[in-house]
Design a protein around this nucleic acid. Structure first.
Lengths: 151, 151
DNA sequence: ACGTGGTTGTTCAAATTCAAACCAAGCTGT
DNA sequence: ACAGCTTGGTTTGAATTTGAACAACCACGT
């Protein structure tokens, strides 16, 4: 067993910062969304992605990939949102197996009311803590990290 | 309802990068640890923290805080590790209520064998993707983000 | 000593997550 | 047309997570 290259002090600090920041920001967000909009973060993300998509609809598999979640997990969450009338399912015309998740008017409306508080929290927890320079590095570096892990 | 300051392009890129990188890295790590060591990431983290602590033991509540998890979640995971003989519980001499989680020799041994693969994956997924400059910014910036959310 | 309030860790129920099995439908080559 | 492989989405069961409720205990002021 070859001795690996351990992390030096800087690398360790970056790694731990990455882990802790990820955990804490996620936690903070989850709590804020639950309190103010009654949504989990995954649910909020579903609504956001649908709202951004043309027609407010995306195929299930495609949506699962964008959300970086399992297909079964998405089935469950879309079910939850459907129960609350925020999303509905629509059969795909060209592929009998296919299913679109569609944002309803109620869903769009809830998103409108939830968004300001969400953005404020994102700013408070992450964005406004950093200066422009740091934001640029984060965007570039973490963008690259994400991109590489996509395949 | 006051119009919030929405995120501009750079801020949005940083935020999305942060989310996607966090998700993907976590996912990659989870998979690697499960495959090579039969541990979940939370479990691995427990072992690491114990190994770092003097005497290889930490009080449950203290450990939960370091891991940024709920107390009940920790109770469960320590139970799992205990079943496998990687950790044991020890009563606290000065406080009857208190419980130490203690790393066993088997736990230390498993950690030794698991660590190299883990570090390699962390490098591959995150550390080695960035240059020193970026690592420094990440460490400082995300360190600050985490610190602020500690309250 | 005594009450009061805060701590400690566990238990509990409910919600969520994932991977694997599954079914139905599409696609490809013969 | 048909066999064999891939895809799309759901179902299923097991594992995990969380917050709330709980029981036992500590510390402190009176």
């Amino acid at each position: 067993m070859k001795e690996p290259r351990w992390l030096d002090e800087l690398e360790m600090a970056a790694w731990q910062g990455f882990l802790e920041a990820g955990n804490r920001v996620t936690r903070r967000l989850e709590q804020q969304l639950k309190d103010e909009a009654g949504l989990s973060h995954p649910q909020y993300e579903i609504l956001v992605h649908l709202a951004d998509a043309p027609g407010g609809e995306i195929r299930m598999t495609e949506l699962a990939e964008r959300l970086i979640t399992s297909k079964s997990g998405l089935t469950y969450q879309v079910g939850q949102l459907e129960r609350r009338g925020l999303v509905r399912r629509r059969a795909c015309p060209t592929d009998v197996r296919g299913v679109f998740a569609v944002l309803t008017e109620e869903g769009r409306e809830l998103l409108r009311t939830a968004a300001p508080g969400h953005v404020a929290t994102v700013r408070e927890a992450l964005i406004d803590v950093l200066d422009r320079e740091e934001l640029a590095v984060l965007a570039r570096a973490l963008g690259e990290v994400g991109r590489r892990l996509r395949d």
